[in-house]
């Protein structure tokens, strides 16, 4: 018994089905690829950062997409906080003239004598790293900078990375977009 030859209508129908299948399959594969492929974003390695101030001045966003974040598990909750007070502060008070941050983006909250909590107001932070320098030099280094991905445009060529003197800004996988200090749950470094 010979195989029955397809007539033109059947040939067109099967061709259409095959094309439709290919399109649907292709779209599915593309979507899957989009979901699973490694996307890369810019991030600051806080262990390489030298607090040069360029994150504040060179980001295409204004204010910068770089913000200070606080690793509370590293913080000493000190009364005399090197990241909060100017080196020559005449009093350990919240008066503006004693604050190191040029935009008053750090809130000092009393916990119990003599401990204070320091909270960053992200909207006010310009990523200048002045507090990071003070905390790193004179404290435990709990304050550090990170690129915030809800603000960052993820430019092809990061304008901060181009001028970063310590090459602290690098591409990281979007699935692991932050390099947080003191994140012991992830085996983070101190």
């Amino acid at each position: 018994m010979g195989k029955k030859a397809k007539n033109r209508r059947e040939f067109i129908q099967s061709g259409m089905r095959m094309s439709l299948g290919l399109v649907v399959g292709g779209l599915g594969a593309l979507s899957l690829k989009h979901v699973t492929k490694d996307e890369w974003v810019w991030q600051i390695d806080p262990f390489e950062c030298t607090q040069c101030g360029r994150c504040a001045t060179n980001c295409v966003m204004s204010p910068s997409a770089v913000k200070c974040i606080h690793a509370y598990d590293l913080c000493g909750y000190c009364n005399l906080c090197g990241g909060y007070f100017k080196p020559d502060a005449n009093k350990l008070s919240t008066a503006a003239e004693n604050q190191l941050c040029p935009t008053a983006a750090i809130q000092r909250r009393y916990i119990e004598k003599p401990y204070f909590e320091y909270v960053i107001d992200e909207d006010l932070c310009i990523g200048c790293a002045k507090c990071v320098k003070g905390c790193t030099s004179f404290g435990n280094g709990s304050l550090h900078l990170q690129v915030m991905h809800n603000i960052c445009l993820n430019c092809n060529e990061c304008s901060i990375a181009r001028v970063c003197p310590s090459h602290a800004i690098k591409r990281v996988k979007a699935a692991d977009a932050y390099i947080v200090k003191g994140d012991f749950s992830k085996g983070g470094k101190t």
């Binding site: 001045t57 080196p87 020559d88 190191l100 200048c128 002045k130 003070g134 030099s137």
Partner: peptide, 17 residues
């Protein structure tokens, strides 16, 4: 331009001390 940065306007300066 890149590589020709001026002084850091946010310098944490303790040189006096």
């Amino acid at each position: 331009k890149p590589g020709k940065q001026g002084e850091n306007p946010f310098l944490y300066d303790v040189s006096e001390f």
